[in-house]
Design a protein around this nucleic acid. Structure first.
Lengths: 237, 237
DNA sequence: ACCGGCAAGATTGCATACAGTATACGGACA
DNA sequence: TGTCCGTATACTGTATGCAATCTTGCCGGT
């Protein structure tokens, strides 16, 4: 793949097949570049610490330096790259300290998110959660790690969105993605426990029991944090 | 003021006066532009909803469109402007809903921050907090609103920084600034109460009592939230 | 052999130029 | 008179160009 799907000039057929009701502003290239680069970072094609040269990325993606610059700057504010003045962009290198801080913040945010979810969840919402839970169970049974990771992310995102606090769920989205990036390379041993906790969580939300939902989520998050920490400290053996 | 202090080409005297030990990379223009624009937004020179034309801002600030664009994009991710594709930037218009969501998130984050502060505070830290508290009391006595607002922000920032969680304190910084922007235009009647709560908070932190510090901060934040809400609902009278 | 200075190449940061889209205005037609 | 359509203008999005700066490697001195 050497260039982006240039959706920019996508010829919109004249009312073709009742498609695209919405006005559909052409998404700026920088967004596509942002997504592409983030993907490359997350899947470690671009390694932590690596120097990202604007011109190279531009050529690789088939665009000019401009959108690349803009994407890199947003990647910086979102914590994925470090931008050193007059030196350029470097893929952010996670430290243990930072990972722990992120896990702590996530724990706090998601605990609150779970409480809100319990307060706001409709029958519809609960149904959706159970569906996501099942997807996770299936992935677990199939031992499909990729699907499991995705199901996990989806479930947490769903809980956040049920809380009806956009600011909160966007924040959780950002933090969560970074945490997973740090966490992924490490063995992920407690899947079974984790999904049991999810079941508990959903039950609490279904009951509208905010206190319990918060408590379960807190335990869940701290469990993860503990696991991460244990992994790290026994790593050198 | 029509142009930025062009620190870029600042002639660095050859080892002049032992100044600048640190390498001191020249701060990119976009950062100066970001600061300038944010100031203009916060002090309402640029009103919510206003269309920000890149060329105008560029001329006003004495730079090209490029750094302005980059600043605007970061202002977007930080929630100060909305960037509509092919239409440009508009100063973000706060909604009541969003304000409440931000207040809720801030409450959660600062509660945690207070707990951390209580766990980590050194004698030095406590001394600093008391100094900030005194600054606030002075401003209160002098009925100096500007200084009071600043003292308030400083105190909260100090508490956050004591917690030794950078991720957390940066987040609080962003959220807090936005909340203050929304909140400021509204009458700020509970200054006295607020600073009494600060005193309680500092006492709890000094005792290293995380539970109590968290509880006080939570009460403090929810109090503010309630005040905001009351103001809003009685506004039309 | 090691250190400091110097020059060449590489890369960023900023400015300018160009292309494409959205909005506003005005005239033709019902 | 009101509405629709076409054109003109304004502004954004992207590309390219230029100057300043950082980095690297080489050379001379010690």
């Amino acid at each position: 793949m050497t260039s982006l799907p240039s959706g920019r000039r996508a010829a919109r057929g004249p009312l073709s097949a009742a498609a695209s009701r919405r006005v559909e502003r052409p998404a700026p290239l920088r967004q596509a570049v942002y997504d592409a680069l983030l993907e490359l970072i997350v899947n470690r094609t671009l390694a932590p610490g690596q120097h990202l040269v604007e011109a190279e990325l531009a050529e690789y993606l088939g665009v000019s330096r401009q959108p690349v610059r803009e994407a890199l700057q947003r990647l910086q504010t979102d914590g994925w790259v470090d931008l050193r003045p007059a030196q350029g962009a470097f893929v952010h290198t996670p430290t243990e300290e930072e990972a722990d801080q992120l896990l702590a913040v996530r724990s706090v945010l998601e605990t609150y998110s779970a409480k809100l979810a319990a307060e706001h969840a409709t029958a519809q919402d609960v149904k959706q959660l159970k569906k996501l839970q099942k997807a996770g169970e299936d992935a677990l049974a199939a031992a499909d790690v990729d699907r499991l990771v995705e199901a996990n992310a989806n479930l947490h995102a769903a809980v956040a969105s049920i809380g009806r606090n956009k600011v909160l769920s966007e924040m959780i989205g950002l933090v969560d993605r970074r945490v997973r990036w740090y966490y992924t390379p490490i063995a992920r041993p407690r899947s079974r426990d984790s999904w049991n906790e999810h079941a508990e969580l959903i039950a609490a939300i279904a009951d509208g029991d905010a206190e319990r939902a918060g408590e379960v989520m807190h335990r869940h998050a701290e469990q993860t944090r503990q696991t991460y920490h244990d992994q790290k400290t026994t790593e050198g053996n």
